[in-house]
């Protein structure tokens, strides 16, 4: 992410530490759409996904000092919590129960005001990430996506794909190395 955006995120975290609700609002507006998409992809329930996102931002407000700058960006901090909570949620559910909870959000209305910041701020990075993902071998991409988006462990993936566990592990590492390299140099991912 750009230094400017990272610096802004850090400033927002400092504002949250200082108990400034406006800082929380801006952080929410930056990341809520992407966070909700991630939670929804994992949980497959729009209402529960929104609940997770609300809880995550509430936890950021309550414990902003949990963020450690040397462990990554604020964006990474937020998405990691969203991912962990969403995965925890689905792992507590049986597959049957999980699917039974898929519902239509009757009164859902697009929050146009909340999308503006996301659209401007993250759109470019979104293109880069998709390019990087498309640039790694399909068998590595598949395993990474099953792990991150479906909440599956390496052992579960090995069973599902009838692959040796060692193969899943090596594909994970190779895929993540390539993704990391491509995202560090997005032009690489688009080639």
């Amino acid at each position: 992410m750009s230094d400017l955006n990272a610096a802004r995120d850090q400033a927002l975290l400092r504002g949250i530490v200082a108990r400034d609700p406006a800082a929380l609002r801006e952080l929410f507006e930056r990341y809520a759409s992407a966070a909700t998409a991630l939670a929804h992809r994992i949980i497959r329930d729009p209402m529960l996904a929104e609940d997770v996102v609300q809880e995550v931002f509430l936890s950021v407000w309550e414990r902003p000092n949990a963020y450690q700058p040397d462990r990554g960006s604020v964006r990474s901090f937020v998405f990691t919590i969203v991912h962990n909570r969403a995965v925890d949620r689905v792992r507590r559910e049986s597959a049957h129960h999980r699917h039974a909870r898929v519902e239509v959000n009757n009164d859902g209305q697009p929050a146009i005001d909340d999308t503006v910041v996301d659209a401007v701020y993250l759109a470019e990075r979104r293109v880069e990430v998709r390019g990087a993902l498309a640039g790694i071998p399909a068998e590595q991409r598949q395993i990474i996506e099953m792990m991150y988006f479906d909440g599956m462990t390496q052992r579960q993936i090995a069973e599902r794909l009838a692959l040796p566990l060692g193969t899943v592990k090596s594909r994970t590492l190779l895929g993540m190395r390539k993704l990391q390299a491509a995202l560090a140099d997005p032009a690489e991912g688009r080639r």
Binding site: A34, A35, A37, L38, R41, G72, S73, R75, S76, V78, F79, T80, V82, H83, L122, R125, R126, V129, R130, A132, L133, I144, Y148, F149, M176, L179, Q180, L183
Partner: peptide
């Protein structure tokens, strides 16, 4: 960072 970026693929 790499994992968090994956969220943006959606």
């Amino acid at each position: 960072e790499t994992a968090a970026d994956l969220a943006l693929a959606l």
